[in-house]
Structures are given as structure tokens and as C-alpha cells.
């Protein structure tokens, strides 16, 4: 993690912590104090001892505010679920001294809160999340590209969205984020009804992000629908793996605390694995 101050997260740079990192050959200009004299004595070669540097975390939480996020036939709306995750993560990160920022995307940037560490900033994030509303259309792909260009420093990007957009374009965004060396995770929110189409009588489906109307009998279209959803999910999942993204598919009927606990434990395990 690239940070400005000392924190709980491992920095990509070498620093002055007690954690040994690696040996490297001495080059002119290096501080001679860093030479490993024992190695020089034994081998008559010049090696520098390097140590890990600890730094703080810069985290951007991106919440999709498109109209499709307002869907919630069986309980919680996806958007509410997203706000809970975003708020909880913000709270936790802020309390461990990390800088948290918030990005709300609809068909533009509805809200852009840069990462800060102070408690007042956390309140600002909570207020923004509380006031946020879903919009008719989404420009998630376009905004993610712009976002990837906008942030210069490497950061943790947590995207919370239902990803109802063109999969290939979305994966391009992930590639863009990966290219910019950001660590990012995707909370892919889906309503249970969207995952099983458990409807029994003819339905006039009204597009939440447009004016399309489709009269269909779920019994007839269920199989091809589920097949299409399956293909789409596989593609997203594979894309996330390809770009080292942490993919979390979340059904909104699941408790969000358990989802977050899993997420945090996995990241902890990942951090230890790297160490």
C-alpha cells in the first residue's frame, strides 16, 4: 500500500521497519550504513540489507447508483445493501487509521469524496451515503475509466455494483484499474429473484433503466434466462480473476456482516500469504 504516513499496511517501498525484506547488491550512492558487514567479512562482497516499510491505506469505495440498483423484490434493495457495505467498510477503515474516500456513480459522478483519515470525514461519508439516491441511467463503465485515470496513487478500490452493463466494457475497466496497479475488489450485488427468476405467472417486465416492456411467461423463458445469467456471471468472475480483482458475488438475502467478515478474513489471509 502506498501511503503518506506510517500505518498498518505494508508499503511497496523499503523502509525502516523491523521486518527484513531482502538483500541487494550495493551500488554507488547507497548509504554505506546499510551495508551488511558480516556478509562483507565472510564473502568480501557488498550487499545492502533492506527492510519493509509500513504505511497507511488509501481506499476508494465506489457505489453504483444506477436505477437497477433500486431493485429489491424479495426484501432489501440492492442499493440499500450497497450503502450498508460502503458505510461499514468506511467505518472500519477510518478507525484503523486508513484514508477512505467515496465515489457515487450514476450517469456521471454523483459524489466524489477523496480519501481522508479524520473522524469528521467519516461523518461526511455517512451523510453522503444517507442522502444518495438511485438515478435512471448508469455510466458505470465510463466513470470507472475516468476514475482509474484520476487517481494517481495506488489505492484499494472497492466497487459495489450489480454490473448490469456490457460485460466486455466492464472488464476493460478492470483491466484499466489493474494497469494502474490498483488493488480492487468487486461486490457484485444481485437480488435472489434475479438469480432464479422464481415467478409463476405471466409478467409484464418494465425496464428500470429504460422504457422497454417485455411480456413473458417465466415458465417458458426461465431456462434460457438462467443460462444467460450463468454465462454472464462466469465471464465477470473470470475477468476479475484475470485482473487480480477480489470478486464477491452477493445475494441480497444474505447478511451483509457475514459477507464483510469473509471479505476481511480473506484479505488478512492474502496479506499474510504475501508476507
Amino acid at each position: 500500500m502506498v501511503g503518506n504516513i506510517v500505518g498498518h499496511h505494508k508499503s511497496p517501498y523499503r523502509g525502516s521497519s523491523v521486518e527484513f525484506a531482502e538483500y541487494r547488491k550495493y551500488v554507488p550512492g547507497d548509504d554505506p550504513r546499510l551495508l551488511d558487514w558480516r556478509v562483507l567479512a565472510r564473502t568480501d562482497r557488498y550487499f545492502i540489507r533492506e527492510f519493509e516499510a509500513d504505511t497507511n491505506l488509501r481506499c476508494y469505495i465506489v457505489v453504483d447508483c444506477s436505477a437497477s440498483m433500486a431493485f429489491g423484490e424479495k426484501g432489501t434493495r440492492k442499493f440499500d445493501y450497497a450503502r450498508k457495505i460502503a458505510a461499514t467498510l468506511s467505518y472500519m477503515l477510518s478507525h484503523q487509521g486508513d484514508a477512505v474516500g467515496l465515489q457515487l456513480f450514476d450517469n456521471g459522478v454523483a459524489s466524489d469524496i477523496p480519501p481522508r483519515r479524520n473522524p469528521l470525514h467519516l461523518k461526511h461519508i455517512f451523510d453522503t451515503l444517507a442522502k444518495a439516491k438511485t438515478q435512471k441511467e448508469t455510466g458505470l463503465v465510463q466513470e470507472l475509466h475516468q476514475f482509474a485515470e484520476r487517481i494517481r496513487q495506488r489505492a484499494l478500490v472497492i466497487i459495489i455494483s450489480d454490473c448490469f452493463c456490457d460485460v466486455d466494457e466492464l472488464l476493460n475497466c478492470f483491466e484499466h484499474l489493474h494497469f494502474q496497479k490498483h488493488d480492487f475488489a468487486l461486490f457484485h450485488l444481485l437480488d435472489p429473484l434475479e438469480l432464479d427468476l422464481d415467478l409463476d405467472r405471466p409478467i409484464r417486465f418494465q425496464d428500470m433503466e429504460g422504457s422497454d416492456v417485455l411480456l413473458a411467461e417465466p415458465e417458458i423463458i426461465r431456462e434460457p434466462y438462467l443460462e444467460a445469467v450463468r454465462e454472464y456471471l462466469v465471464k465477470i468472475h473470470e475477468g476479475c480473476n484475470k485482473h487480480n480483482a477480489d470478486y464477491r458475488r452477493v445475494s441480497t438475502d444474505q447478511p451483509y456482516d457475514a459477507i464483510l467478515a469473509d471479505f476481511l478474513v480473506d484479505r488478512e489471509m492474502l496479506a499474510k500469504g504475501r508476507a
Binding site: 431493485f71 423484490e73 448490469f164 405471466p202 425496464d207 428500470m208 433503466e209 413473458a216 426461465r222 434460457p224
Partner: peptide
């Protein structure tokens, strides 16, 4: 039953459209 269908705002229209196109003759 077809006449008394209900309206449902739906987010995942892209899959419905695909499914409607793909729904087989057999179905």
C-alpha cells in the same frame, strides 16, 4: 392467465431479452 399478468419493474432486462430470443420452439 395471460390477460391478468402483473407488472414488475425489472433490472436484469438484458438477460430477459436474451432469454426471450433464445426460448426454444420446443418450450
Amino acid at each position: 392467465n395471460r390477460l391478468r399478468h402483473r407488472k414488475l419493474p425489472w433490472a436484469a432486462m438484458m438477460f430477459l431479452r436474451m432469454a426471450n430470443r433464445k426460448s426454444t420452439r420446443y418450450a
